[in-house]
Design a protein around this nucleic acid. Structure first.
Lengths: 146, 146
DNA sequence: TGACTCATGTCAGTATCCTGACACATAATG
DNA sequence: CATTATGTGTCAGGATACTGACATGAGTCA
């Protein structure tokens, strides 16, 4: 008779703790990126372009887990600052590939180092095998929700 | 000579995968809560009040990982909908304790069941020991960043 | 060919969350 | 007692991300 389970104590909940961890990561990244004049979203865009030059706006949006509209605005801001270049005409299709300018390239290197330090600090208390296992568990969560 | 490490491939990055998992969780929760007329933030507020009646706005904000200002707005919306009640005068101090109304109580029960189903689905592929270990690892990440 | 589907880019409007600022209440400290 | 520090509630403004909508280009299929 409607005896369905509800959410239990939050400090025992993986979902709640997952959100807490993601928030902590976001705060830590923000405090490192702010001095470089970048938001987390802007950095995400630049990092994706660093690792995969020529990515389109829609692909960047998926990679940063935001909508096309949001990424479009991010991309436009970076373009106005001369960090990213997009071809205004394209030979095939509708997607316009984006690339880093030299200025964007050197800035993302700085930012990427700062973020790498955050990640190293974040996982500093885990062993190498812990890290591999944790990565796999997180991917399991994602897979189960998809 | 500035040989500092940058962020590696994203599918090997715990930080990136953590964000991806948190986003997937948020999307799944949103799609379950939307039919009940609740946003994730509104649900978070109600769930915190369900598990800890009489919590103040500032405490709720910390528990939901948002600012006092944001939570204040959430709380006001819930109050206007008759789901939450706050004493307008208080005997001691400045904090005004909030509580669920009967309507809020029955709605949060529905919402909490829906969210519990999401969490069960999310962790369905992990064993009991996996879950305990994952929870500990996530807490380690948080602790290392604090 | 023409209709349909799908992915993309973009505009407009809205919702949500943030930072900055100020006032009030309490406790600690000189 | 006065001052300071800390925690709280709230107002104002701005930044960011979202939903909805529309047009464009490419592929599919009757």
């Amino acid at each position: 008779m409607s005896q369905e389970r509800m959410v239990g104590p939050l400090d025992r909940s993986i979902g709640y703790t997952l959100k807490q961890a993601a928030t902590a990561e976001n705060v830590a990244m923000d405090s490192e990126l702010r001095p470089l004049g970048l938001t987390v979203s802007q950095y995400s865009c630049l990092e994706l372009l660093r690792q995969n030059p020529g990515t389109s706006n829609a692909e960047l949006a998926r990679g940063a887990f935001v909508t096309r509209q949001s990424m479009n605005e991010v991309l436009r801001g970076l373009q106005e600052r001369g960090l990213v270049a997009r071809a205004d005409t394209v030979a095939q299709g509708r997607a316009r590939p984006a690339e880093l300018t030299p200025a964007g390239q050197s800035l993302v290197v700085e930012a990427s180092r700062a973020v790498a330090r955050v990640e190293q600090r974040m996982i500093s208390s885990l062993s190498e095998s812990d890290r591999g296992r944790l990565l796999g568990d997180l991917k399991s969560l994602i897979e189960s929700l998809s």
